[in-house]
Amino acid sequence: MRTRTTMILAGLATAGLLTGPARAETPPALKGLWKLVSYEVEVRADGRKQPVMGDHPTGFAYFTPDERVFFLLTGEGRKPAETDAERAALMKTLVSYTGKVTLKGDQWTAKLDAAWDPKWVGTEQTRSFTIEGDRLRVLTPWRVMPNWADQGETRSIVTFERTKD
């Protein structure tokens, strides 16, 4: 009887019925620190691509082993702000957020718990991605983005390179 009970419990644990659902870990290919290489916005209406953060933006993405992502992306040539208007203008060259990530195929969804724009807190942000060698290419879905709302529907094409640090 004891052997049968042990086998049943082992089977339930293996199925996740005793311990809860298994959590998918960040895959090794995505895990770690990525340096921003380029940030383009593509306009859906005409296919035009713009380096909205300049030719040499700065920033990083970090995918932790325990399913969290951190993004800090800033535009080229940012200067310290002295006035409220200058501080407000800096927001147009900043994207920053963090949240827990779930992965499914070539997409991740981050449930944000902190962001540069408070409207994003509590939202789920889904991104498609490809990894080729040491390059990570990230695509946002087509939509009206807060920083470039005047362009209509756009999507961001963000390229990172794995850091060697």
Rank of each mutant, 00 (worst) to 15 (best):
M1W: 15
T3N: 14
R4L: 14
R4W: 10
T5I: 15
M7Q: 15
P21V: 07
P21C: 13
A22C: 05
E25Y: 09
T26H: 10
P28D: 10
P28C: 02
K31S: 09
K31C: 14
G32P: 05
G32Q: 02
G32F: 06
L36D: 09
L36Y: 00
Y39F: 13
Y39Q: 01
E40A: 10
E42M: 06
V43I: 12
G47Q: 04
R48F: 00
Q50P: 02
M53V: 05
M53H: 14
M53T: 01
D55V: 02
P57N: 12
G59P: 14
F60A: 12
T64I: 04
P65M: 13
R68M: 15
L72T: 12
L73S: 00
T74P: 15
E76W: 13
A81D: 11
A81M: 06
A81L: 08
E82K: 15
E82C: 09
T83D: 05
A85L: 14
L90F: 07
K92M: 12
T93G: 14
Y97I: 02
Y97H: 08
T102W: 06
L103N: 02
K104D: 15
K104C: 08
D106I: 04
D106W: 11
D106E: 07
W108E: 02
K111N: 10
K111W: 05
K111I: 02
D113L: 10
D117A: 05
P118E: 11
V121E: 07
T126G: 06
T126V: 10
T130K: 02
T130D: 08
D134A: 07
R137F: 00
L139Q: 04
V144L: 09
W148I: 03
A149Q: 12
A149C: 08
Q151S: 05
G152C: 06
T154N: 06
S156W: 11
I157Q: 11
V158G: 03
E161A: 03
R162D: 05
T163E: 07
T163R: 13
K164S: 14
K164D: 15
